Amino acid sequence: IDAAQIVDEALEQGITLFVVNNRLQYETSRDSIPTELLNKWKQHKQELIDFLNQLD
């Protein structure tokens, strides 16, 4: 699994991931984030931050 897949998966569930001051953040209108997704974010945090920083 790679960062792009995780970002896409989040988007499919209505969650936008982004980076502020090198910290992973998210925006969503959902009430809660699925635990499975949160765990993936934690496991791949640095990859996600690097990936999202490249997009900007």
Results as ranks from 00 to 15, higher is better:
residue 49 I to W: 03
residue 50 D to G: 06
residue 29 S to R: 12
residue 2 D to R: 13
residue 11 L to Q: 11
residue 21 N to G: 11
residue 43 Q to V: 11
residue 14 G to C: 07
residue 28 T to I: 03
residue 45 K to E: 15
residue 42 K to V: 10
residue 20 V to M: 10
residue 16 T to V: 13
residue 35 T to A: 13
residue 13 Q to A: 14
residue 12 E to K: 14
residue 43 Q to R: 12
residue 19 V to E: 02
residue 22 N to P: 01
residue 6 I to Q: 01
residue 21 N to E: 09
residue 16 T to K: 15
residue 5 Q to V: 08
residue 34 P to E: 04
residue 1 I to P: 08
residue 55 L to V: 11
residue 51 F to D: 00
residue 15 I to Q: 00
residue 52 L to D: 00
residue 56 D to I: 11
residue 45 K to M: 15
residue 22 N to S: 06
residue 2 D to C: 15
residue 18 F to T: 10
residue 3 A to Y: 09
residue 50 D to N: 12
residue 56 D to V: 12
residue 3 A to I: 14
residue 46 Q to A: 09
residue 56 D to Q: 15
residue 12 E to L: 11
residue 19 V to Y: 04
residue 52 L to V: 02
residue 32 S to P: 11
residue 41 W to D: 00
residue 44 H to S: 05
residue 43 Q to H: 08
residue 29 S to N: 11
residue 51 F to M: 03
residue 32 S to F: 13
residue 33 I to V: 12
residue 47 E to Y: 07
residue 30 R to K: 09
residue 20 V to C: 15
residue 25 Q to G: 10
residue 48 L to H: 00
residue 39 N to L: 14
residue 17 L to A: 01
residue 43 Q to M: 12
residue 47 E to P: 06
residue 5 Q to N: 07
residue 11 L to W: 10
residue 32 S to L: 08
residue 47 E to A: 14
residue 30 R to P: 02
residue 11 L to N: 08
residue 51 F to S: 01
residue 17 L to V: 02
residue 6 I to E: 02
residue 40 K to W: 05
residue 27 E to L: 14
residue 52 L to F: 08
residue 23 R to A: 14
residue 6 I to S: 01
residue 55 L to Y: 11
residue 48 L to Q: 00
residue 6 I to P: 01
residue 32 S to G: 07
residue 50 D to H: 10
residue 7 V to T: 03
residue 9 E to D: 06
residue 12 E to I: 09
residue 43 Q to E: 11
residue 51 F to Y: 15
residue 29 S to K: 13
residue 1 I to K: 07
residue 4 A to P: 05
residue 27 E to N: 13
residue 39 N to G: 07
residue 26 Y to C: 08
residue 10 A to I: 02
residue 9 E to C: 05
residue 26 Y to E: 01
residue 46 Q to P: 04
residue 36 E to V: 09
residue 44 H to C: 06
residue 22 N to Y: 06
residue 28 T to Y: 05
residue 18 F to Y: 13
residue 25 Q to I: 12
residue 44 H to R: 05
residue 55 L to E: 07
residue 23 R to T: 15
residue 34 P to G: 04
residue 38 L to F: 08
residue 16 T to A: 06
residue 35 T to R: 11
residue 18 F to M: 09
residue 11 L to S: 08
residue 11 L to D: 05
residue 29 S to L: 11
residue 14 G to V: 02
residue 25 Q to Y: 15
residue 7 V to M: 05
residue 14 G to Q: 05
residue 31 D to P: 11
residue 44 H to F: 14
residue 33 I to F: 04
residue 49 I to Y: 03
residue 17 L to S: 04
residue 54 Q to K: 13
residue 29 S to H: 09
residue 20 V to A: 09
residue 17 L to H: 00
residue 5 Q to L: 10
residue 25 Q to S: 10
residue 18 F to E: 04
residue 36 E to K: 07
residue 5 Q to K: 12
residue 54 Q to N: 12
residue 36 E to N: 08
residue 10 A to C: 04
residue 30 R to F: 06
residue 42 K to H: 12
residue 28 T to D: 02
residue 22 N to F: 06
residue 4 A to V: 05
residue 34 P to Y: 02
residue 53 N to Q: 11
residue 13 Q to T: 04
residue 53 N to K: 12
residue 6 I to L: 12
residue 25 Q to C: 15
residue 44 H to G: 03
residue 18 F to N: 05
residue 15 I to S: 01
residue 4 A to C: 08
residue 30 R to T: 06
residue 48 L to S: 00
residue 24 L to Y: 02
residue 5 Q to H: 09
residue 3 A to G: 04
residue 14 G to A: 04
residue 36 E to P: 06
residue 1 I to D: 07
residue 32 S to I: 11
residue 47 E to S: 08
residue 47 E to M: 13
residue 51 F to E: 01
residue 25 Q to R: 13
residue 47 E to G: 06
residue 56 D to M: 13
residue 8 D to C: 15
residue 48 L to W: 01
residue 42 K to F: 13
residue 38 L to D: 02
residue 4 A to Q: 13
residue 21 N to D: 13
residue 12 E to R: 15
residue 52 L to N: 00
residue 2 D to I: 14
residue 35 T to C: 11
residue 8 D to M: 15
residue 9 E to F: 05
residue 24 L to S: 02
residue 22 N to C: 12
residue 45 K to Y: 15
residue 39 N to S: 09
residue 31 D to F: 07
residue 8 D to R: 15
residue 11 L to Y: 09
residue 50 D to Q: 10
residue 27 E to P: 02
residue 40 K to P: 01
residue 28 T to K: 03
residue 56 D to L: 11
residue 24 L to K: 00
residue 45 K to A: 15
residue 21 N to V: 04
residue 52 L to T: 00
residue 37 L to G: 01
residue 13 Q to F: 14
residue 50 D to A: 13
residue 24 L to V: 04
residue 6 I to R: 01
residue 40 K to D: 03
residue 40 K to F: 09
residue 9 E to I: 03
residue 27 E to K: 15
residue 28 T to G: 05
residue 2 D to G: 10
residue 45 K to L: 15
residue 16 T to P: 02
residue 47 E to R: 07
residue 25 Q to P: 00
residue 44 H to A: 07
residue 44 H to W: 13
residue 40 K to I: 09
residue 25 Q to D: 06
residue 45 K to T: 14
residue 19 V to P: 02
residue 56 D to T: 14
residue 1 I to G: 08
residue 41 W to V: 08
residue 18 F to A: 06
residue 3 A to P: 14
residue 48 L to G: 00
residue 43 Q to S: 10
residue 32 S to A: 10
residue 35 T to M: 13
residue 31 D to S: 10
residue 9 E to T: 03
residue 53 N to L: 13
residue 6 I to W: 06
residue 34 P to I: 03
residue 22 N to G: 15
residue 1 I to Y: 11
residue 46 Q to G: 06
residue 7 V to C: 05
residue 14 G to H: 05
residue 18 F to P: 01
residue 2 D to Q: 12
residue 23 R to M: 15
residue 13 Q to W: 15
residue 16 T to E: 06
residue 8 D to K: 15
residue 24 L to E: 00
residue 47 E to Q: 11
residue 27 E to T: 15
residue 38 L to R: 06
residue 11 L to K: 14
residue 12 E to Q: 14
residue 38 L to K: 07
residue 49 I to A: 03
residue 14 G to E: 04
residue 20 V to K: 13
residue 27 E to A: 14
residue 34 P to V: 03
residue 3 A to Q: 03
residue 46 Q to D: 10
residue 43 Q to C: 06
residue 39 N to Q: 12
residue 31 D to E: 12
residue 34 P to S: 06
residue 40 K to Q: 07
residue 12 E to W: 08
residue 29 S to I: 08
residue 35 T to L: 13
residue 14 G to P: 01
residue 44 H to K: 05
residue 55 L to W: 08
residue 18 F to Q: 07
residue 5 Q to Y: 09
residue 47 E to K: 09
residue 50 D to E: 11
residue 27 E to G: 07
residue 10 A to D: 01
residue 21 N to C: 14
residue 54 Q to I: 09
residue 44 H to V: 06
residue 49 I to F: 04
residue 32 S to T: 12
residue 15 I to E: 00
residue 33 I to H: 02
residue 7 V to F: 09
residue 31 D to Q: 10
residue 48 L to V: 06
residue 8 D to S: 15
residue 37 L to Q: 03
residue 34 P to C: 03
residue 50 D to S: 10
residue 48 L to T: 01
residue 26 Y to P: 02
residue 20 V to T: 08
residue 16 T to N: 07
residue 23 R to G: 08
residue 8 D to E: 14
residue 40 K to S: 04
residue 51 F to P: 00
residue 50 D to P: 03
residue 28 T to H: 06
residue 48 L to K: 00
residue 33 I to A: 04
residue 7 V to D: 00
residue 8 D to L: 15
residue 6 I to K: 01
residue 11 L to E: 07
residue 35 T to H: 10
residue 51 F to Q: 02
residue 14 G to I: 02
residue 38 L to P: 02
residue 53 N to F: 07
residue 9 E to R: 04
residue 54 Q to S: 13
residue 38 L to Y: 08
residue 8 D to F: 15
residue 1 I to Q: 12
residue 15 I to H: 04
residue 27 E to M: 14
residue 30 R to V: 06
residue 6 I to D: 02
residue 7 V to Q: 02
residue 22 N to Q: 06
residue 44 H to Q: 03
residue 36 E to Q: 09
residue 36 E to R: 08
residue 3 A to R: 02
residue 1 I to A: 09
residue 31 D to Y: 05
residue 3 A to F: 09
residue 36 E to W: 12
residue 16 T to G: 04
residue 13 Q to V: 07
residue 17 L to Y: 01
residue 39 N to I: 12
residue 21 N to A: 07
residue 41 W to C: 05
residue 5 Q to T: 10
residue 22 N to M: 07
residue 46 Q to S: 08
residue 9 E to G: 03
residue 48 L to N: 00
residue 45 K to Q: 15
residue 33 I to C: 03
residue 18 F to L: 10
residue 38 L to A: 05
residue 27 E to R: 15
residue 45 K to F: 14
residue 21 N to F: 07
residue 39 N to V: 11
residue 19 V to W: 03
residue 43 Q to N: 10
residue 7 V to W: 07
residue 10 A to L: 04
residue 30 R to Q: 06
residue 26 Y to D: 00
residue 53 N to A: 09
residue 13 Q to K: 09
residue 22 N to D: 08
residue 42 K to S: 12
residue 43 Q to W: 07
residue 45 K to P: 03
residue 22 N to W: 05
